[in-house]
Protein backbone atom coordinates (compact mmCIF):
# COMPACT_ATOMS: atom_id res chain seq x y z
CA UNK A 1 0.00 0.00 0.00
CA UNK A 2 1.04 3.55 -0.65
CA UNK A 3 2.37 5.32 2.41
CA UNK A 4 1.03 8.75 3.30
CA UNK A 5 4.42 10.24 2.38
CA UNK A 6 4.41 8.61 -1.05
CA UNK A 7 0.99 10.07 -1.62
CA UNK A 8 2.24 13.55 -0.76
CA UNK A 9 5.18 13.15 -3.15
CA UNK A 10 2.75 12.26 -5.90
CA UNK A 11 0.52 15.20 -4.95
CA UNK A 12 3.50 17.54 -5.26
CA UNK A 13 4.40 16.09 -8.66
CA UNK A 14 0.86 16.83 -9.87
CA UNK A 15 1.03 20.33 -8.48
CA UNK A 16 4.33 20.98 -10.26
CA UNK A 17 3.07 19.50 -13.48
CA UNK A 18 -0.11 21.52 -13.45
CA UNK A 19 1.92 24.65 -12.80
CA UNK A 20 4.03 23.97 -15.90
CA UNK A 21 1.39 25.12 -18.37
CA UNK A 22 1.88 21.90 -20.32
CA UNK A 23 -1.32 20.34 -19.09
CA UNK A 24 -3.20 18.30 -21.66
CA UNK A 25 -6.68 16.88 -21.53
CA UNK A 26 -5.11 13.50 -20.96
CA UNK A 27 -3.27 14.93 -17.93
CA UNK A 28 -6.48 16.38 -16.62
CA UNK A 29 -8.24 13.02 -16.97
CA UNK A 30 -5.41 11.14 -15.34
CA UNK A 31 -5.27 13.63 -12.52
CA UNK A 32 -9.03 13.43 -11.94
CA UNK A 33 -8.77 9.67 -11.88
CA UNK A 34 -5.96 9.84 -9.32
CA UNK A 35 -8.03 12.13 -7.12
CA UNK A 36 -11.04 9.87 -7.38
CA UNK A 37 -9.11 6.71 -6.60
CA UNK A 38 -8.60 7.50 -2.93
CA UNK A 39 -9.70 10.31 -0.62
CA UNK A 40 -6.20 10.16 0.84
CA UNK A 41 -4.94 11.41 -2.53
CA UNK A 42 -7.44 14.22 -2.49
CA UNK A 43 -6.71 15.51 0.98
CA UNK A 44 -2.94 15.24 0.46
CA UNK A 45 -3.23 17.25 -2.73
CA UNK A 46 -5.48 19.88 -1.17
CA UNK A 47 -3.17 20.25 1.78
CA UNK A 48 -0.16 20.97 -0.43
CA UNK A 49 -2.17 23.09 -2.82
CA UNK A 50 -3.45 25.27 0.02
CA UNK A 51 0.10 25.75 1.29
CA UNK A 52 1.36 26.58 -2.18
CA UNK A 53 -1.40 29.13 -2.68
CA UNK A 54 -0.46 30.62 0.65
CA UNK A 55 3.11 31.03 -0.59
CA UNK A 56 1.81 33.69 -2.98
CA UNK A 57 2.31 36.01 -0.03
CA UNK A 58 5.97 36.00 -0.97
CA UNK A 59 4.94 38.42 -3.70
CA UNK A 60 4.95 41.09 -1.03
CA UNK A 61 8.72 40.88 -1.21
CA UNK A 62 8.81 41.42 -4.93
CA UNK A 63 7.07 44.77 -4.78
CA UNK A 64 9.20 47.38 -6.49
CA UNK A 65 11.71 44.93 -7.90
CA UNK A 66 12.39 44.38 -11.54
CA UNK A 67 10.88 41.07 -12.66
CA UNK A 68 13.43 38.46 -13.67
CA UNK A 69 16.21 39.94 -11.55
CA UNK A 70 16.67 37.73 -8.53
CA UNK A 71 18.36 39.31 -5.50
CA UNK A 72 20.89 37.22 -3.55
CA UNK A 73 19.75 35.35 -0.43
CA UNK A 74 19.30 37.45 2.67
CA UNK A 75 19.57 40.79 0.96
CA UNK A 76 16.01 41.06 -0.26
CA UNK A 77 14.22 40.74 3.02
CA UNK A 78 14.82 44.33 3.97
CA UNK A 79 12.82 45.23 0.92
CA UNK A 80 10.19 47.68 2.10
CA UNK A 81 6.69 46.34 2.00
CA UNK A 82 4.96 49.57 1.39
CA UNK A 83 6.48 51.61 -1.36
CA UNK A 84 9.14 51.56 -3.94
CA UNK A 85 11.55 54.32 -3.14
CA UNK A 86 14.90 52.70 -2.29
CA UNK A 87 15.76 55.50 0.10
CA UNK A 88 12.93 54.40 2.31
CA UNK A 89 14.28 50.93 2.89
CA UNK A 90 14.23 51.82 6.52
CA UNK A 91 10.90 53.34 6.95
CA UNK A 92 10.19 53.66 10.59
CA UNK A 93 10.96 57.11 11.76
CA UNK A 94 11.78 56.52 15.35
CA UNK A 95 11.27 59.37 17.69
CA UNK A 96 12.56 59.49 21.20
CA UNK A 97 10.67 61.22 23.94
CA UNK A 98 13.86 62.47 25.59
CA UNK A 99 15.30 65.28 23.48
CA UNK A 100 18.83 64.87 24.78
CA UNK A 101 19.29 61.69 22.87
CA UNK A 102 18.08 63.20 19.65
CA UNK A 103 21.63 62.92 18.43
CA UNK A 104 21.38 59.16 18.26
CA UNK A 105 18.13 59.37 16.34
CA UNK A 106 19.89 58.78 13.07
CA UNK A 107 21.66 55.77 14.49
CA UNK A 108 18.38 54.48 15.84
CA UNK A 109 16.77 54.94 12.46
CA UNK A 110 19.45 52.76 10.97
CA UNK A 111 19.14 50.28 13.77
CA UNK A 112 15.58 49.44 12.85
CA UNK A 113 16.94 47.84 9.74
CA UNK A 114 19.64 45.79 11.39
CA UNK A 115 18.02 44.93 14.68
CA UNK A 116 20.41 46.66 17.03
CA UNK A 117 17.83 48.76 18.77
CA UNK A 118 17.33 46.05 21.35
CA UNK A 119 20.63 46.96 22.91
CA UNK A 120 19.44 50.41 23.83
CA UNK A 121 17.46 50.38 26.99
CA UNK A 122 15.59 53.56 27.75
CA UNK A 123 12.56 53.07 29.98
CA UNK A 124 9.99 54.76 27.78
CA UNK A 125 10.28 54.73 24.03
CA UNK A 126 8.14 56.18 21.31
CA UNK A 127 7.84 54.68 17.87
CA UNK A 128 6.03 56.14 14.92
CA UNK A 129 5.52 55.62 11.23
CA UNK A 130 4.76 58.22 8.55
CA UNK A 131 1.83 57.98 6.14
CA UNK A 132 2.42 54.92 3.99
CA UNK A 133 4.96 53.61 6.48
CA UNK A 134 5.25 50.28 8.21
CA UNK A 135 7.55 49.00 10.93
CA UNK A 136 8.00 45.77 12.85
CA UNK A 137 9.66 46.35 16.20
CA UNK A 138 10.80 43.65 18.63
CA UNK A 139 10.53 44.68 22.28
CA UNK A 140 12.92 43.62 25.00
CA UNK A 141 10.38 41.29 26.61
CA UNK A 142 10.24 39.20 23.44
CA UNK A 143 7.00 40.71 22.16
CA UNK A 144 6.77 42.20 18.70
CA UNK A 145 4.74 45.20 17.66
CA UNK A 146 3.92 46.05 14.06
CA UNK A 147 2.99 49.61 13.27
CA UNK A 148 0.75 50.29 10.33
CA UNK A 149 0.67 53.56 8.40
CA UNK A 150 0.64 56.86 10.29
CA UNK A 151 0.82 55.36 13.78
CA UNK A 152 2.47 56.17 17.05
CA UNK A 153 2.95 54.29 20.31
CA UNK A 154 4.80 54.84 23.57
CA UNK A 155 6.24 51.76 25.20
CA UNK A 156 7.11 51.50 28.89
CA UNK A 157 8.39 48.18 30.17
CA UNK A 158 8.75 47.87 33.92
CA UNK A 159 9.13 44.91 36.24
CA UNK A 160 5.46 44.98 37.14
CA UNK A 161 3.82 45.61 33.82
CA UNK A 162 4.25 46.28 30.16
CA UNK A 163 2.38 49.42 29.22
CA UNK A 164 1.75 50.64 25.69
CA UNK A 165 0.00 53.87 24.86
CA UNK A 166 -1.49 53.97 21.41
CA UNK A 167 -1.47 57.63 20.47
CA UNK A 168 -2.65 57.23 16.90
CA UNK A 169 -3.08 54.72 14.13
CA UNK A 170 -3.04 50.95 14.18
CA UNK A 171 -0.70 48.48 15.80
CA UNK A 172 -0.57 44.69 15.85
CA UNK A 173 0.74 43.13 19.05
CA UNK A 174 2.34 39.71 19.28
CA UNK A 175 2.69 39.41 23.02
CA UNK A 176 5.34 37.22 24.67
CA UNK A 177 3.87 35.23 27.52
CA UNK A 178 4.75 36.55 30.93
CA UNK A 179 2.03 36.05 33.56
CA UNK A 180 3.90 38.14 36.09
CA UNK A 181 3.84 41.22 33.87
CA UNK A 182 0.50 42.01 32.25
CA UNK A 183 0.58 43.60 28.83
CA UNK A 184 -1.60 46.72 28.80
CA UNK A 185 -2.54 48.74 25.78
CA UNK A 186 -4.24 52.04 26.42
CA UNK A 187 -6.18 53.80 23.71
CA UNK A 188 -8.99 56.32 23.71
CA UNK A 189 -10.06 55.85 27.31
CA UNK A 190 -9.98 52.06 27.11
CA UNK A 191 -7.48 49.58 28.27
CA UNK A 192 -6.81 46.23 26.61
CA UNK A 193 -5.18 43.63 28.83
CA UNK A 194 -3.36 40.57 27.50
CA UNK A 195 -1.10 37.96 28.97
CA UNK A 196 0.21 36.09 25.94
CA UNK A 197 -1.68 36.59 22.74
CA UNK A 198 -1.98 38.37 19.43
CA UNK A 199 -4.24 41.25 18.67
CA UNK A 200 -4.36 44.61 17.00
CA UNK A 201 -5.68 47.93 18.12
CA UNK A 202 -6.67 50.73 15.79
CA UNK A 203 -7.52 54.14 17.04
CA UNK A 204 -9.25 57.09 15.46
CA UNK A 205 -9.82 59.78 18.02
CA UNK A 206 -11.43 58.09 20.96
CA UNK A 207 -12.96 55.27 18.90
CA UNK A 208 -11.01 52.06 18.86
CA UNK A 209 -11.18 48.77 17.04
CA UNK A 210 -9.64 45.64 18.53
CA UNK A 211 -9.08 42.48 16.48
CA UNK A 212 -8.03 39.38 18.37
CA UNK A 213 -6.29 36.72 16.28
CA UNK A 214 -5.13 34.47 19.07
CA UNK A 215 -5.61 33.85 22.78
CA UNK A 216 -7.69 36.08 25.03
CA UNK A 217 -7.71 39.76 25.83
CA UNK A 218 -9.82 41.91 28.10
CA UNK A 219 -11.16 45.30 27.14
CA UNK A 220 -12.03 47.59 30.02
CA UNK A 221 -12.37 51.30 30.71
CA UNK A 222 -9.09 52.93 31.57
CA UNK A 223 -10.60 54.67 34.59
CA UNK A 224 -13.56 53.80 36.77
CA UNK A 225 -15.52 50.60 37.02
CA UNK A 226 -17.22 50.13 33.69
CA UNK A 227 -17.92 46.75 32.22
CA UNK A 228 -14.95 44.61 31.23
CA UNK A 229 -15.32 42.48 28.12
CA UNK A 230 -13.37 39.26 27.65
CA UNK A 231 -12.52 38.59 24.02
CA UNK A 232 -11.26 35.43 22.37
CA UNK A 233 -9.67 34.74 18.99
CA UNK A 234 -11.80 35.94 16.13
CA UNK A 235 -13.42 38.77 18.05
CA UNK A 236 -13.59 42.12 16.36
CA UNK A 237 -14.61 44.93 18.66
CA UNK A 238 -15.59 48.48 17.86
CA UNK A 239 -15.88 50.93 20.69
CA UNK A 240 -16.85 54.55 20.95
CA UNK A 241 -16.87 56.60 24.15
CA UNK A 242 -20.04 54.94 25.40
CA UNK A 243 -20.63 51.84 23.34
CA UNK A 244 -18.94 48.57 22.61
CA UNK A 245 -19.87 46.25 19.77
CA UNK A 246 -18.46 42.73 19.54
CA UNK A 247 -18.49 40.81 16.28
CA UNK A 248 -17.54 37.15 16.25
CA UNK A 249 -15.47 36.02 13.30
CA UNK A 250 -13.35 32.95 12.70
CA UNK A 251 -9.69 33.40 13.63
CA UNK A 252 -8.97 33.11 9.92
CA UNK A 253 -11.29 36.01 9.07
CA UNK A 254 -9.78 38.02 11.89
CA UNK A 255 -6.37 37.35 10.42
CA UNK A 256 -7.61 38.58 7.04
CA UNK A 257 -8.74 41.84 8.64
CA UNK A 258 -5.11 42.41 9.44
CA UNK A 259 -3.77 41.74 5.97
CA UNK A 260 -1.97 45.09 6.12
CA UNK A 261 0.77 43.28 8.02
CA UNK A 262 1.89 41.71 4.75
CA UNK A 263 1.62 44.92 2.80
CA UNK A 264 -1.72 44.10 1.24
CA UNK A 265 -5.27 45.24 1.75
CA UNK A 266 -7.92 42.57 1.42
CA UNK A 267 -11.48 43.45 0.54
CA UNK A 268 -14.41 41.10 0.50
CA UNK A 269 -17.56 42.66 -0.87
CA UNK A 270 -16.41 45.92 0.67
CA UNK A 271 -18.26 49.10 -0.23
CA UNK A 272 -16.21 51.31 -2.53
CA UNK A 273 -16.26 54.17 -0.04
CA UNK A 274 -14.86 51.92 2.71
CA UNK A 275 -12.16 50.53 0.43
CA UNK A 276 -11.21 54.07 -0.59
CA UNK A 277 -11.06 55.16 3.06
CA UNK A 278 -8.74 52.24 3.71
CA UNK A 279 -6.43 53.19 0.82
CA UNK A 280 -6.43 56.80 1.90
CA UNK A 281 -4.74 55.82 5.13
CA UNK A 282 -1.65 54.99 3.09
CA UNK A 283 -1.40 58.00 0.84
CA UNK A 284 -1.04 61.75 1.03
CA UNK A 285 -2.97 62.13 -2.21
CA UNK A 286 -6.41 60.95 -1.15
CA UNK A 287 -9.05 59.43 -3.39
CA UNK A 288 -12.35 61.30 -3.30
CA UNK A 289 -15.60 59.66 -4.32
CA UNK A 290 -17.59 62.49 -5.91
CA UNK A 291 -20.68 60.58 -6.97
CA UNK A 292 -22.54 59.19 -3.94
CA UNK A 293 -24.15 56.54 -6.15
CA UNK A 294 -20.73 54.90 -6.47
CA UNK A 295 -20.80 53.82 -2.86
CA UNK A 296 -23.05 50.96 -3.97
CA UNK A 297 -20.08 49.37 -5.75
CA UNK A 298 -18.60 46.36 -3.99
CA UNK A 299 -14.91 45.57 -4.13
CA UNK A 300 -13.39 42.15 -3.64
CA UNK A 301 -9.72 41.33 -3.93
CA UNK A 302 -6.26 41.84 -2.56
CA UNK A 303 -4.30 44.96 -3.38
CA UNK A 304 -0.83 46.21 -2.60
CA UNK A 305 -1.34 49.05 -0.14
CA UNK A 306 1.41 51.08 -1.78
CA UNK A 307 -0.05 50.92 -5.24
CA UNK A 308 -3.00 53.23 -5.10
CA UNK A 309 -2.51 53.76 -8.83
CA UNK A 310 -3.19 50.10 -9.60
CA UNK A 311 -6.37 50.27 -7.60
CA UNK A 312 -7.55 53.38 -9.39
CA UNK A 313 -6.66 51.82 -12.73
CA UNK A 314 -8.80 48.82 -11.84
CA UNK A 315 -11.75 51.05 -11.00
CA UNK A 316 -11.34 52.77 -14.33
CA UNK A 317 -11.05 49.62 -16.45
CA UNK A 318 -13.13 47.24 -14.39
CA UNK A 319 -15.99 49.47 -13.39
CA UNK A 320 -15.74 52.14 -16.06
CA UNK A 321 -15.30 54.98 -13.61
CA UNK A 322 -14.08 58.35 -14.68
CA UNK A 323 -10.85 59.40 -13.02
CA UNK A 324 -9.66 62.99 -12.60
CA UNK A 325 -6.25 63.32 -11.02
CA UNK A 326 -4.61 66.41 -9.66
CA UNK A 327 -1.45 66.81 -7.58
CA UNK A 328 -3.44 66.79 -4.39
CA UNK A 329 -6.37 64.45 -5.01
CA UNK A 330 -7.79 61.71 -7.17
CA UNK A 331 -11.49 62.15 -8.00
CA UNK A 332 -13.81 59.29 -8.88
CA UNK A 333 -16.97 59.83 -10.91
CA UNK A 334 -19.38 57.66 -12.79
CA UNK A 335 -18.91 57.89 -16.52
CA UNK A 336 -20.89 60.58 -18.20
CA UNK A 337 -21.78 62.28 -14.94
CA UNK A 338 -21.39 65.50 -16.84
CA UNK A 339 -18.60 67.50 -15.17
Amino acid sequence: MESSKEIEERALAWLGKRDSGRWSEADEAEFAEWLRADTAHRVAFLRREAAWEYSARLKAFGVGRKPGVVPPPGEWRISPFFDRRPASAVRAALKRSAPKIAAVAAAVLLAVGVGLYQKMKPTAEAYSTPVGGFASIPLRDGSTIMLNTDSMVRVALTEKERRIELEAGEVFFNVAKDPSRPFLVEAGGRRIVAVGTQFSVRRSGTDIEVVVTDGKVRVEPKFGHGRAELLTAGAVVHTTQNSLLVQKKTPHEADEELSWRTGYLTFDETALTDAVAEFNRYTRRPIIVDDPRLSALRITGTFSASRVGDFVELLKNGFGLQINESDKEIHLNSKGSGD
Partner: peptide, 19 residues
Protein backbone atom coordinates in the same frame (compact mmCIF):
# COMPACT_ATOMS: atom_id res chain seq x y z
CA UNK B 1 -4.52 24.20 23.28
CA UNK B 2 -5.17 27.76 22.19
CA UNK B 3 -4.14 29.31 25.49
CA UNK B 4 -0.82 27.45 25.56
CA UNK B 5 2.39 29.26 24.78
CA UNK B 6 2.98 27.42 21.51
CA UNK B 7 0.39 29.01 19.34
CA UNK B 8 -0.73 28.73 15.79
CA UNK B 9 1.67 30.50 13.56
CA UNK B 10 0.62 34.00 12.59
CA UNK B 11 0.63 35.34 9.10
CA UNK B 12 3.78 37.26 9.89
CA UNK B 13 5.68 34.27 11.26
CA UNK B 14 4.57 32.17 8.33
CA UNK B 15 5.82 34.78 5.91
CA UNK B 16 9.20 34.85 7.59
CA UNK B 17 9.45 31.07 7.55
CA UNK B 18 8.57 31.14 3.92
CA UNK B 19 11.22 33.73 3.18
Amino acid sequence: DRPSPERDTTAHQALRRLA
